[in-house]
Design a protein around this nucleic acid. Structure first.
Length: 422
DNA sequence: TCTGGGGTCCTAGGACCC
DNA sequence: TCTGGGGTCCTAGGACCC
C-alpha cells in the first residue's frame, strides 16, 4: 500500500511556511496604473538629481538595469529606459490591501518589507486544503485586484520559503518539500541564502565552502572559531534548518531606532545651510517619534562628505528621553560641533535610539509644557496640510529644494516604520 | 551627471562598579 | 602592596536586509 499521506501532514510538528514576494513591485504598480508603460523597460526612481533606480521592470532588467544603479548608468545599459518618479502612497496602499488579503488565509502573516511577507499556513489547511491552493488563490486575487504578479515559495521554514520564492520569477510558485531539502541544498551556492552577503560569501569561499551542502557538512568548531556565535547558525543554514517563527502583525518587537537621512541636491559647506539642514532632519525625526509616542536617549549624527567615500557617524547618550525636535537638534548640533568638518557635506542623517515606548508625558514645568503644546499644534497642522507646511522659521526658504526623497522597499505599509509624510 | 534611505544585529574596546 | 574577574553601559564600526 503506497504512502498517500501528503508531505505536509506526514509530521505533526511540520510547519508549512509561505513566502510571497511581489515581482518588481513599484515598477509593476506603475505599469498596472498606466497602460503606456506595460511591456516596456521602466524604472522607478526617487526625485532629484542624485537619485538612483529603486526598482526596474523585468523588461528593463533584461538590459542589465538593477536596483541601486545611478540614473546615468541605467541609461547607458538601456537608452530607451522610461523613468518614473515613485509615489509612495500608491505602493503603501497596494501593499496594505495585499497584506490584508493574506490575513484572510491565516492570522500568522509577517510583513517583511513593503513587498514581501511570510505566512505560516500550517493551521489553515483544514479550511483551505493544500498550501498550493492557498498560493494559487492569492496569486489570482492579487492579479485580479491589482494587475500585478508575485512569486511564492512554500517550504518547512522561513529560510527555505524565501529561497523557494526566489527560484522562479516572475509569477512563480515553488515548493520545497521536507524530503527534498537535502537534494536542493547540496549544490546550492551559499550566497543564495538570505543572510549570506558578499563578505560572508568571500570568507566561506576562502575556506573552500561554496555550496550549502559543503556548509552543512562543515565542522561546527571550525565555523565557530572563524565566525563566533553565528558559526553554529551558518551550519544550520547550510542544512536548510531554521526554526525562527513567523511573527504576525502586532507581535513584532518594538522598534529600536527612528531616523532620517538625506542626500542634498548640492553639497553644502556654509554653517548656516548645515544648521538649517540639521534642523530639518531633527524635525522629521522628532515628528515621527512623537506621532508614535516614542522618545530616545541616544542621538546619532551621520555625515557623508562630498567625495562620497569619506563619512563618519557619532552618537551621544543623554540623561533623559527626548522627542522634541529642538532637543534632538541641540544634541545633534553638539555632536556636529565636536568635529572639525573636512569637506562639504553630501549627506546627513539624524536618528534616535535607546527608545522608550511609553509616550513621554508633557513636563510639569510650565515652560516645557508650553513648548510641547506648540509642538503638538505644529504637528497637527502638518498632519492635516502635509509635511513642512508649518515648521521652524529657518526652514521656510528651503521648503522647495530639499534633498532628493527616495522611496525605499524596506518601508513598512503601517506603523512607525512607515515613513510616509502624510 | 556618478553612486538612496529605512532599518537590524553583532563585535570590540574602554570606563566604571562591585 | 599586589592580585582578579564579572557585569553594565557606552561608542564605533561593519555586515546584512529590502
Amino acid at each position: 500500500m503506497p504512502d498517500v499521506t501528503p508531505y505536509y501532514l506526514s509530521d505533526p510538528k511540520q510547519r508549512i511556511v509561505m513566502h510571497l514576494d511581489m515581482n518588481a513591485f513599484f515598477a509593476s504598480v506603475e505599469q498596472a496604473a498606466n497602460p503606456e508603460l506595460q511591456g516596456r523597460p521602466i524604472a522607478v526612481t526617487g526625485s532629484g538629481n542624485r537619485t538612483i533606480i529603486t526598482t526596474a521592470s523585468y523588461e528593463a532588467r533584461k538590459f542589465g538595469v538593477k536596483t541601486g544603479m545611478a540614473i546615468w548608468e541605467a541609461k547607458r545599459h538601456c537608452p530607451q529606459l522610461i523613468l518614473v518618479v515613485g509615489d509612495n502612497r500608491k505602493y503603501t496602499y497596494t501593499s496594505s490591501r495585499i497584506m490584508e488579503m493574506m490575513q484572510e488565509y491565516t492570522p500568522e502573516v509577517e510583513i517583511f518589507s513593503i513587498d514581501e511577507a511570510f505566512l505560516d499556513v500550517t493551521h489553515s489547511l483544514a479550511m483551505f486544503g493544500t498550501p498550493e491552493r492557498i498560493a494559487h488563490l492569492l496569486k489570482a486575487r492579487i492579479r485580479a485586484s491589482f494587475g500585478i504578479t508575485c512569486s511564492i515559495g512554500i517550504a518547512p521554514n522561513k529560510l527555505l520559503a524565501k529561497l523557494a520564492s526566489e527560484m522562479q520569477k516572475p509569477d512563480g510558485l515553488t515548493v520545497i518539500k521536507p524530503e527534498d531539502v537535502g537534494r536542493v541544498m547540496e549544490r546550492l551556492p551559499i550566497q543564495e541564502l538570505c543572510g549570506i552577503g558578499k563578505k560572508m560569501q568571500r570568507h566561506l569561499n576562502m575556506m573552500s565552502i561554496h555550496t550549502c551542502g559543503e556548509l552543512g557538512r562543515c565542522d561546527e568548531a571550525r565555523l565557530t572559531r572563524k565566525f563566533g556565535i553565528i558559526g553554529m547558525r551558518l551550519k544550520q543554514m547550510g542544512q536548510g534548518f531554521d526554526d525562527s517563527p513567523v511573527i504576525p502583525v502586532g507581535r513584532e518587537d518594538d522598534v529600536k531606532s527612528v531616523g532620517h537621512s538625506m542626500t542634498l541636491e548640492k553639497d553644502i559647506d556654509r554653517r548656516e545651510d548645515i544648521l538649517r539642514f540639521l534642523l530639518q532632519l531633527s524635525e522629521m525625526v522628532g515628528r515621527r517619534a512623537r506621532r508614535y509616542g516614542v522618545a530616545g536617549r541616544t542621538v546619532s549624527l551621520y555625515v557623508r562628505y562630498a567625495d562620497f567615500f569619506t563619512s563618519w557617524g557619532k552618537q551621544t547618550t543623554l540623561r533623559n528621553y527626548i522627542n522634541l525636535s529642538n532637543e534632538i537638534y541641540k544634541a545633534a548640533l553638539s555632536i556636529l560641533d565636536s568635529v572639525e568638518l573636512e569637506q562639504p557635506i553630501r549627506l546627513m542623517g539624524v536618528s534616535i535610539s535607546n527608545l522608550n515606548h511609553q509616550a513621554q508625558q508633557p513636563s510639569l514645568f510650565e515652560e516645557e509644557r508650553k513648548r510641547a503644546d506648540v509642538t503638538k499644534a505644529m504637528d497637527e497642522v502638518n498632519e492635516r496640510f502635509g509635511n513642512m507646511s508649518v515648521t521652524f522659521g529657518t526652514l521656510l526658504p528651503d521648503k522647495e529644494k530639499r534633498g532628493s526623497f527616495v522611496i525605499s522597499p524596506a518601508w513598512r505599509p503601517k506603523g512607525i516604520r512607515n515613513v510616509d509624510v502624510e
